[in-house]
Nucleic acid binder design. Structure first.
Lengths: 241, 241
DNA sequence: CGGTCAGTTGATTCTTCTCAACGGAAGTGG
DNA sequence: CCACTTCCGTTGAGAAGAATCAACTGACCG
């Protein structure tokens, strides 16, 4: 019983910096509803690096909210190549794009240890119907996802290699900032080949760009640790071709 | 009055091949509700080639369903370049991705004469709350849009120029087929530069690819008129690089 | 009948990929 | 704890693909 109370307190704390916060706790939700909420959302045991949250083809049954850690979502092409669809950071929702499908259409794999909330879809859909604000909020989350994808198309389509990497670094920087972390110093959870995959470039190109950026004083990089020294310079780089 | 009846009949006919069909006419909707529906959806006067349905920055107030014709949606970059986000064909919905925004974030421009249904958003949202199936359907439409964008990322990211064009042609072909038109012979409503823009290639490259495809007997092309001769060959092309 | 614009074709340049080799980190098993 | 393997990241040299620059043709339009 006291265990439950502790969980709720922890949830409130975590949710403050979680993308699902307004979804879980719309303005009208009283403290009495918190118990119901606590029942709705399952806290799963942590996911270790390399483990899958779900795989493409699994039965769709829940939406997930990432509390900590990072995951990549990807699809496999016919010839066995992995295509990274997106990188998920704390506060992001997973599974939204599969709502109309009987199965998950992507796989989600932990890049580092992750803690995750699970929201069973049938109960979620029911709650969405009961709370109009929630309905609007979820539409908003999905339309944001559409925009993110469209921006990625624009990025991959027309930008030079250096602009793409600058763009990705700035995006990651912003997302860290939004989550209350440093915008200029962080650890990349993904490997060089993940980055190359996301940007549609060769691993070697990424490697060369990192050293080149470093030589130009734009950043310092030591394996996965990145320190952005010149955000303005990176933004200018982003405008290139 | 008889005008209204004719409109309803026309709507029913049109809606059968319209993406919004299940949205307008969920299973449970009786014939009495048809009048209400007819009131909800405004038929606008046709949009001529070059005219805008809405422009980026306009107040968001409605979702649109395209009944006939084609539109392109695009954004302008800071340096005045146009980035095409998507091509909309009959049955497609426009504006879904701006549901959480006070303004339209894209511009929508007619590539040829278009007839369009307008669905005021506040009434639409209300209807969505009243009819659960509708709610689920609209989520499905949005998740489909997310997938389309993700597929476009994959396309622009990793594919060679010829594979991209082949992919676009096959996509257009499929979409014509879904709408009851010929999958192998159609008019491109977009210009070469629109195609180049969508695929992230130079106009000259598109031109060269068309002649190259023609030389290889994959298709015949005469300005905007395209006749696909070897769908299987185009699919093989799509797998390249 | 010019004038503009869309589309095509050729020649050249540049960016990025591919292939290849190497160093170092992390993990494995004795 | 050390030798071994494997994976990741870096660097160099050459190749390939697509962009750019430039010139030309044919439509369309007033």
């Amino acid at each position: 019983m006291s265990q439950t109370l502790i969980d709720i307190a922890a949830l409130q704390h975590v949710c403050e910096q979680c993308g699902i916060y307004k979804l879980c706790m719309p303005a009208g939700l009283g403290s009495g509803d918190l118990d119901a909420l606590d029942n709705l959302i399952k806290r799963r045991r942590p996911l270790e690096r390399g483990q899958h949250l779900y795989e493409s083809g699994d039965d769709f049954h829940a939406i997930f909210a990432l509390r900590s850690g990072t995951l990549k979502t990807y699809v496999m092409t016919e010839d066995g190549e992995e295509h990274i669809v997106g990188i998920k950071m704390p506060g992001d929702l997973l599974g939204l794009s599969d709502i109309n499908s009987p199965h998950y259409t992507r796989s989600a794999k932990a890049l580092e240890t992750c803690s995750i909330c699970e929201i069973p879809y049938d109960r979620f859909a029911q709650l969405t119907r009961e709370i109009p604000d929630l309905h609007h909020h979820i539409l908003g989350m999905m339309s944001r996802e559409i925009h993110q994808e469209q921006d990625r198309v624009t990025m991959c389509k027309n930008l030079s290699a250096e602009a793409r990497l600058a763009g990705l670094l700035l995006l990651i920087s912003q997302r860290f900032l939004q989550r209350g972390f440093s915008a200029t110093e962080f650890n990349l959870s993904m490997s060089r080949s993940d980055i190359a995959n996301m940007l549609g470039l060769a691993v070697e190109t990424i490697s060369r760009l990192f050293t080149q950026f470093q030589e130009h004083g734009l950043l310092e990089v030591e394996r996965k640790h990145v320190k952005l020294l010149d955000l303005h310079g990176l933004e200018q780089m982003l405008r290139k071709s």
